[in-house]
Simulated assay, not measured.
Amino acid sequence: MNYNILVINPGSTSDDIGYYRGQEPVFEVTVRYSMTDLEPYEGKNVLEQLPLRKKLILDYLIDHNIPLEEINAVIGRGGFIKSVSGGVYEVNEQMLADLSSGRYGGIHPSNLGGILAHEIAQIAHCPSFIANPVVIDEMQPLARYSGMPENPRISIFHALSQKRVARMIANKLGKKYTEINCIVCHGGGGITVGAHCKGRVIDVNNGYEGDGPMTPQRSGGVPSSGLVQMCFSGKYTERDIKLKLRGKGGLVAYTGTSDVKDLEEFIRTGVKRPGSMIFCTREQAEEARDAMVYQIAKYIGAMAVVLKGQVDFIALTGGLMNSKVIPQKIGEYVSWLAPLYVFPGSEEKIALREAAQRALEDPSCVKRYV
């Protein structure tokens, strides 16, 4: 059966929304907020933007002549709630309280996804959901050990993207996601590599907080003694260190840019575009890019060990995989382990639509947040 589904994926300065009748999009659009729109909210809790964002989404529905009463479900990107297992969750009062309070990891723009979905669904008199939020935790006990009992490894990763790609490839192979073992790498501003075992991500790096390979703007795992010395050297504030870990680490620290497309054009031609922030030589840029690839491949190899070599396939997804070079170079390291599939981009709206479709087709699969 075909259902009419509204998808909401909030970002810091935009809402990525889509409306679907069955599998056909009525519209897919990124609603961007101008500096003028956001100026009244500068320095304030992001929740104060809810009326603005809700109105613009409702206006889009009106502009496309979509009556609210035809909507069968609204689904939003999952935010920072308590750790849960993978799946589709109906938005309830406990989830709304946790998203609004920032109890688990603060109030990130993604927290607005579940709240906006709920508020619009109330008007439309339909259910609201989230699916596979970044805080999915299916890690096996051994994966949690860090060497410091006070500082265990935790699971924060691109769950929505990783699980969709894994499920999609499994279907192409004529199997269920719960029947296969695979390794999925999502590469973007952050990079996460997950070991998927029979439908559960039993080990994955916490890409949000900087664990794992270096990325275009994150340092990844760094030598611990050196980091401690930096922290107590008196040269850096706490904010400086946090920015080195997330925001100004990785490729941007070595090259001056986190724009991989710009960097690869410089590597290819040796010419910096007008306004480019690249400060290194062509050779240094290539080596830094290749170092990131090397680290990604190492993490894929580590996850193959986690799965004891029983890997049905390896999948590469996310914006980084739009590169013509990066997937190829990763493949040179890891393609001997298992068949390699590349799906550039993340298609999070499609992943959310498919999750809502599953929830409407089989209400028994919907999980309750407690």
Rank of each mutant, 00 (worst) to 15 (best):
N4E: 06
N4V: 00
I5Y: 04
L6M: 05
I8D: 00
P10E: 11
S12E: 00
D16N: 15
F27D: 04
E28Y: 07
V31Y: 04
Y33E: 03
M35R: 15
L38P: 01
L38N: 01
L47Q: 03
P51D: 04
I57D: 01
I57S: 01
L58K: 14
D63T: 07
D63P: 02
N65L: 10
L68H: 11
L68M: 14
V74S: 07
V84L: 12
V88M: 03
V88Y: 09
E90W: 14
V91Y: 07
Q94W: 04
Q94F: 11
M95W: 05
A97S: 12
D98T: 03
L99W: 08
L99H: 10
S101I: 04
S101H: 09
R103M: 08
R103K: 15
G105T: 07
G106K: 07
H108Y: 00
S110Y: 06
L112I: 08
G114A: 12
I123K: 15
C126A: 00
C126F: 02
P127E: 11
I130N: 06
P133F: 11
V134S: 14
V135N: 14
I136A: 00
D137I: 05
E138D: 06
R144G: 09
S146G: 04
S146T: 02
G147K: 03
M148S: 13
F157R: 11
A159Q: 11
S161P: 00
A170H: 04
A170M: 06
K175W: 10
N181Y: 11
I183A: 01
V184H: 14
G187V: 07
G187R: 14
I191C: 13
G194Q: 02
K198R: 15
R200C: 10
N206V: 02
G210I: 02
G212S: 08
G212C: 09
R218Y: 07
S219A: 10
S219I: 01
S219C: 05
G220D: 06
G221R: 14
L227E: 04
V228N: 09
M230C: 01
E238R: 10
R239F: 09
K242T: 04
G247Q: 12
K248I: 01
G249T: 10
G250P: 09
V252P: 08
T255S: 14
D259M: 13
V260I: 14
L263R: 10
E264I: 11
R268I: 00
G270F: 05
K272M: 12
R273W: 05
R273I: 09
R273K: 15
I278A: 03
I278P: 00
C280F: 02
T281Q: 08
R282G: 02
A288D: 05
R289N: 13
R289S: 14
A297S: 15
G301T: 00
M303R: 15
A304Y: 07
V306N: 10
D312I: 05
F313N: 05
I314L: 01
N322Q: 14
K324W: 09
P327F: 05
K329S: 09
V334N: 06
L340Q: 08
G345W: 11
S346I: 06
I350V: 13
A351Y: 02
E354D: 13
A356I: 00
A359P: 07
E361R: 10
D362I: 00
P363Y: 07
K367Q: 15
